[in-house]
Design a protein around this nucleic acid. Structure first.
Lengths: 224, 224
DNA sequence: AGTAGCTAGATAGTGGCAGTATCTTCCATG
DNA sequence: CATGGAAGATACTGCCACTATCTAGCTACT
């Protein structure tokens, strides 16, 4: 397959394909001559994955490269899942501090909240997990807004998160008879299921709003 | 409070405060003279909210403006929740089509999947909901990758999404005795809980991975 | 054999976004 | 009455994700 055919098959412009190659997202084709290379089905699939990660997953090019590198380097065993998980970017919030006293108080409360949660859930996480850091930062941010979780609320969410994670792992493990596909499946489940879940949550919220507030009009979004 | 004090209190540079004002994210201070305006506590809170929405929530300036406009225009009653929900951006994926036949097949399957799901959940959503559109697009994207949900899987996620939405609504409704704060609380719950939930999911995934794969790299779950 | 039409690789340019900096005019306060 | 801010307008910057152009070299058709 020539690059122009690869472009036609996937709908990705030739210039973009070259760009992805330069950025290390896509392996080079097998060169058949100094100015000619042959692309295969694996390039088609990789391009689809790149597109899905950037558009649906909302990943940057750099983050996509990190994730794909983890996929390629995964020794097609268990480490794939962990590597992919850590390669995914994390929503981090770090507002510039205003009042130092208030910041200290908020910070301590957030850290305690996370520690309590992890203990209560009996979660096995390394102390260096970026997710723990990020969660603490997120809770700090909410506390700055005086919108922290009330006692037990966060735990309720965590229980549901555990249920979701069980489904995720089931989904990822469904491919464990095809080791070379495991890492890729892990990416899909970890990175691309998040937006799907978020949309389900929005739909469920919408339903809940309508059920609890019967006076709401039944049409769609307000037109401008 | 002068703008320099507002800047010091919130940690946001003066130039950025002016920028947010220009973009319609922050109301102008009460002008006390041609070149002097007075800012109050509401500006402090609004700036905190802007920072939280952009950093933690990952919203663009334009999206933040839309959300805040919905907050301000909410007639401090029920419509606040709906307006905010629709003002939030939605992860949309639309890959350029390659093969027309395959696209048609994928599209039809995704649409049927969404319709079935909404029916099974008895969700009350308007046909024009952008969330329905977005979910269909997301499922199309996954199907393009040959990574669609197996029968019943999506429903299981949806059930959990419903549980989450119930928690969300409880959280939002906790402020219904302070109508002017309801819309703001809705923003916080709808826009800022998503990253928290995502982080909980990551932590839970991490825990699940560790529990399911107790072995060391030398002994994978399924070796080739 | 000649040539039109690809191709690879390098480099440069574009448009959008989120600020950041500068400039001018004006005024409150010591 | 001088000076340090403040307001508003405009311009500039850096980053990102492409997109276009250019050079040089095939290669397949006639």
């Amino acid at each position: 397959m020539k690059i122009s055919e690869l472009s036609r098959t996937t709908g990705v412009p030739v210039a973009s394909i070259k760009y992805f190659r330069r950025q290390g997202l896509l392996p080079a084709g097998k060169a058949t001559a100094a100015t000619l290379a042959e692309y295969g089905q694996e390039h088609v699939q990789r391009l689809r994955l790149i597109k899905a990660l950037t558009t649906l997953g909302g990943l940057s090019i750099a983050a996509t490269r990190d994730v794909l590198t983890a996929v390629d380097q995964a020794d097609s065993t268990d480490s794939a899942l962990g590597a992919v998980s850590y390669a995914l970017p994390v929503p981090v919030a770090e507002s510039p501090a205003g009042d130092a006293d208030r910041e200290a108080e908020i910070g301590a409360a957030a850290e305690a909240e996370v520690a309590d949660l992890i203990a209560a859930m009996d979660w096995q996480t390394p102390g260096t997990s970026p997710h723990v850091e990020a969660l603490t930062a997120a809770l700090r941010e909410l506390r700055r807004l005086d919108a922290g979780y009330r006692p037990g609320e966060l735990l309720a969410y965590a229980e549901l998160a555990r249920s979701i994670a069980r489904l995720d792992l089931d989904r990822a493990a469904a491919f464990d008879d095809a080791p070379e596909a495991l890492a890729e499946q892990a990416v899909i489940v970890f990175a691309l299921s998040a937006p799907v879940l978020e949309l389900l949550r929005r739909l469920a919220q919408e339903d809940q709003v309508r059920r609890r507030i019967p006076s709401l009009p039944s049409d769609g979004p307000r037109t401008e």
